[in-house]
C-alpha cells in the first residue's frame, strides 16, 4: 500500500495540487524536446537519403559551432591567437560557416561515401564513426579545447505568463526549430531534389538507373545536415559555451529517433517533444523516489517500449521485405 501511495498516488496528487507547476514542467519539457529535435533532424536527413545512421552528427554540430565561434572571435586556426580587427559579425560568420559545412559535405562524399556505394549500411555506419573521430581531432587542432563563449544575441532572461515562468532562450529555440521543420518539410515534399533524396534512400542502384545523380544528392543532403548541425550547435553552444561535450548531445537524439522514426522529419519533432516532456515529468515527480537523475535512462526506457510495439517508430516507414 505504501509503495502504491509513493509511486502512484503521491505524484498524481502533487500534480493536481499544483497545476501551474505541472504546466511549467510540461512547457519546460516541450522546450527541451525542441532542442533534442534539432539534433535528431540531422540524423533523419542523412538516414532518409542514404539509409546510414550518421554517428558523426553530434560532432558535426560541435565542429560547426567551433568554426562559427572561431570566425566571430577572429581566431587564427591552429595558432589559436585572436587577431584584433578580424572579428566577424554573427551574420557573416554564419554564412562562412555554412560554406565550410558545404565544403565538408563535398569532402565526405568524395573521400568516404563514393568509395562505399552499394556497401552494406553497417559499413557506411562504421565510416561515420571514423568521420566522428577525424572531425573531433580536427576541431581540437584547428580551434583548441577551451570552452568558447557563444553570444549571438539570444537573451537569457525570463518572463511570467499565467503564473508560469518562460525563458526567452527557449522561446527562440522553439521558433528557430519550427522554421527549420517547415523549411525541411517543404524541401523534401515539394522539390525535385527532395524527391530524389527519397528515391536514393530506397535504393542506390535503382536511383542511379533512372538517372538520379547519386553524388550530387549526397553532397546536398550532407550540406543540409551540416546546416542543421550548425543550428543545433549554436543553440546548445549558446547555453553551455562551445566545448567538446557538445558532441555528446547526439546521445539525446537517439531515443527521439527511435520514438519518432529514423525517416520522418515530423517524427523527429514529435519524438523530441514526447521525450522532452516525458523525461521532465518523470524526473520531477518520480525522480526523488530513486535519488533523482532518471531522465537520461527514462528517455531510453520509453524508446525501448516503443521498439517493442512499433519498431519503425511513430512516423517511420514500415519496411516490408519479400523473401
Amino acid at each position: 500500500m505504501d509503495l502504491w501511495q509513493a509511486i502512484v498516488l503521491d505524484p498524481i496528487l502533487d500534480m493536481i495540487d499544483a497545476p501551474e507547476f505541472l504546466a511549467e514542467v510540461f512547457i519546460g519539457g516541450l522546450m527541451s524536446g525542441v532542442m533534442y529535435s534539432l539534433v535528431a533532424l540531422g540524423f533523419v536527413l542523412i538516414f532518409k537519403a542514404s539509409g546510414v545512421f550518421n554517428f558523426a552528427q553530434g560532432v558535426l554540430a560541435l565542429f560547426a559551432a567551433l568554426t562559427l565561434v572561431g570566425l566571430m572571435t577572429g581566431t587564427v586556426p591552429i595558432l589559436l591567437t585572436q587577431v584584433p580587427g578580424m572579428e566577424m559579425p554573427p551574420w557573416l560568420a554564419i554564412i562562412i560557416t555554412i560554406v565550410v559545412m558545404i565544403g565538408m559535405a563535398f569532402l565526405v562524399e568524395r573521400i568516404i561515401l563514393r568509395p562505399l556505394v552499394n556497401q552494406d549500411p553497417i559499413i557506411m555506419f562504421m565510416s561515420t564513426i571514423g568521420l566522428a573521430f577525424v572531425l573531433e581531432g580536427a576541431g581540437d587542432i584547428l580551434w583548441g579545447s577551451e570552452v568558447k563563449t557563444l553570444d549571438i544575441g539570444i537573451p537569457n532572461s525570463t518572463f511570467m505568463w499565467a503564473d508560469i515562468q518562460f525563458q526567452e532562450f527557449d522561446i527562440w529555440a522553439a521558433v528557430i526549430s519550427a522554421v527549420m521543420v517547415v523549411f525541411l518539410a517543404l524541401f523534401f515534399q515539394r522539390t525535385r531534389v527532395g524527391r530524389a533524396l527519397r528515391a536514393v534512400a530506397d535504393d542506390h542502384q535503382a536511383a542511379l538507373s533512372v538517372g538520379i545523380p547519386l553524388k550530387a544528392i549526397w553532397v546536398v543532403v550532407w550540406s543540409v545536415a551540416g546546416i542543421v548541425a550548425l543550428v543545433a550547435g549554436v543553440m546548445w553552444g549558446s547555453k553551455s559555451g562551445v566545448q567538446f561535450s557538445l558532441s555528446l548531445i547526439a546521445l539525446k537524439a537517439l531515443p527521439v529517433l527511435i520514438l519518432g522514426g529514423f525517416t520522418s522529419v515530423p517524427g523527429a519533432i514529435v519524438g523530441g517533444l514526447i521525450i522532452g516532456v516525458g523525461e521532465k515529468v518523470a524526473e520531477v515527480y518520480w525522480g526523488p523516489l530513486v535519488n533523482g537523475a532518471i531522465e537520461n535512462w527514462f528517455a531510453y526506457m520509453v524508446a525501448l517500449v516503443f521498439l517493442l510495439f512499433m519498431p519503425q517508430g511513430l512516423f517511420g516507414e514500415k519496411i516490408i521485405e519479400r523473401v
Binding site: G28, S245, N291, E295
Partner: peptide, 21 residues
C-alpha cells in the same frame, strides 16, 4: 534537498524546475 545531474550535465531543466519550486 539533494539533486543529482547525470554526466555530462548539458541538460538540467528538470533540476532547475525543482529549484524554482
Amino acid at each position: 534537498k539533494l539533486l543529482a545531474v547525470d554526466h555530462p550535465g548539458q541538460e538540467q531543466k528538470a533540476t532547475w524546475l525543482q529549484i524554482r519550486r
